[in-house]
Design a protein around this nucleic acid. Structure first.
Lengths: 229, 229
DNA sequence: TTTTCTATTTGCGCCAGCGCAAAGACAAAT
DNA sequence: ATTTGTCTTTGCGCTGGCGCAAATAGAAAA
């Protein structure tokens, strides 16, 4: 657990004594599956490092449609904007997908810590930079790519993040509904189902209820990178 | 000019002596219309504050299609990620739309300055947070909204940023081609033309070559916010 | 086993928006 | 006034992907 914090994206490179302060000033929060750490727009009062479980960052559009931004695994940071004035609202909602726990630091402590440990600020910026890059890539895909490509990319990304090798291919080791994939790729449940079924017929995937195994990553990559439009 | 820097998004709230250092360590670069301050992927060596002219931030997709992220006006910061390790590449390309000039600071100086003036780090984070919010909003619009809505929003945003009141309505005070609008709203030149012509017929807009006047902002807002889909 | 609940598939119809091509309208240069 | 180059409009045809509804299939509970 200390290990996890020390290597977390927010506190890596923090000195030994700094780390003690960090550990001392954080509090542990646990949220059961389906619950929320915070909702989009809430004043950004805490930054979190996930300790156990899985947490989904989602956005909810005015019309109620959901967009899943990312699925976090232990060690990852969310709500990092809390370093700024808490007036800044959280830009997304953090929902636990299963029972989970996370360490939390409030704005005041964070700023205090950042004063003596500048790497915290840098880490936070690094994180934000990462989000920006990711968002831009996604936006690019949305504008320039076909739905098919977007789905392929999401599957590959999931495989990279939580893939496990099996004899059949790479298993995406999270319960994953077609709806989930749709929310991540900006399309509908139906289109995802049709597309993935097609891929199963071609032998690219092996799919089951809430399960995806990638048989031929290479084939997916080819689809994802295909320039033709 | 000092005025501009003092009030810029990157250096606001910096102390008087800090500001002197800032002014001393920056260099002035000018780029003629069509030229580039930097290209997407270049190592992020400098952060800039625009002094004069207009600069467009664009992304170029693998297939060559362009996405315009924002159009900067004097006082705004671009390339702010340079505070991080320059290994981080710029996430977008900065192209001058007309003859322009900008103050530039390199990574080493920035970090030095940030050490004594912590507000610089905070400003940078604030900036990044702004981008993230903007990108997320745009992504949401891309996924959930109709093309019509996206165009309406872009026009409203442009009006907010560079609108000038005239007797006919709000003039968007930048030369703006249909292609530009298309790149910002993630659609095509043709669709933009058709949509805007329609709006002109309905009296919402008055349009000309590279010119847009919003006659009834309220009508556009209604389209932009319309939940029906 | 049977029931119940939720996830998934699939047929069908539909239309928003794309892409091309050709014509028209401006603005600046000659 | 004429030319040249760029921006804009518009007709036409096409199709990817959406949305609904009904059927099917798994998994878990009873």
């Amino acid at each position: 657990m200390q290990q996890l914090i020390r290597e977390s994206s927010l506190f890596r490179e923090v000195s030994a004594q700094g780390l003690n302060q960090v550990l001392g000033s954080g509090i542990l929060r646990s949220v059961e599956g389906g619950g929320f750490y915070f909702m989009q727009g809430d004043p950004a009062a805490h930054a979190y490092v996930l300790v156990s479980g899985r947490v989904k960052m989602v956005q909810i559009a005015p019309n109620g449609q959901q967009i899943t931004l990312r699925i976090m695994t232990p060690g990852q940071t969310f709500g990092g904007i809390a370093i700024l004035q808490p007036q800044a609202g959280y830009p997304a909602t953090a929902q636990a997908e299963e029972d989970s726990a996370a360490m939390a630091w409030d704005t005041a402590h964070l700023r205090e810590l950042a004063k003596t440990e500048p790497s915290i600020s840098l880490n936070a910026m690094q994180l934000m930079h990462g989000y920006i890059t990711e968002l831009q890539e996604r936006q690019q895909a949305l504008v320039t790519g076909r739905v098919e490509q977007r789905i392929a990319r999401i599957l590959l990304k999931l495989a990279a993040d939580s893939g496990k090798k099996t004899e059949d291919g790479i298993l995406i080791d999270i319960p994953l509904t077609r709806q989930d994939v749709a929310e991540m790729s900006g399309t509908t449940l139906f289109t995802v189902s049709r597309t993935m079924s097609e891929w199963e017929r071609n032998g690219l995937l092996k799919i089951g209820r809430e399960r995806v195994i990638i048989r031929e990553p290479h084939g997916l990559v080819k689809i994802a990178d295909d320039l033709a439009r």
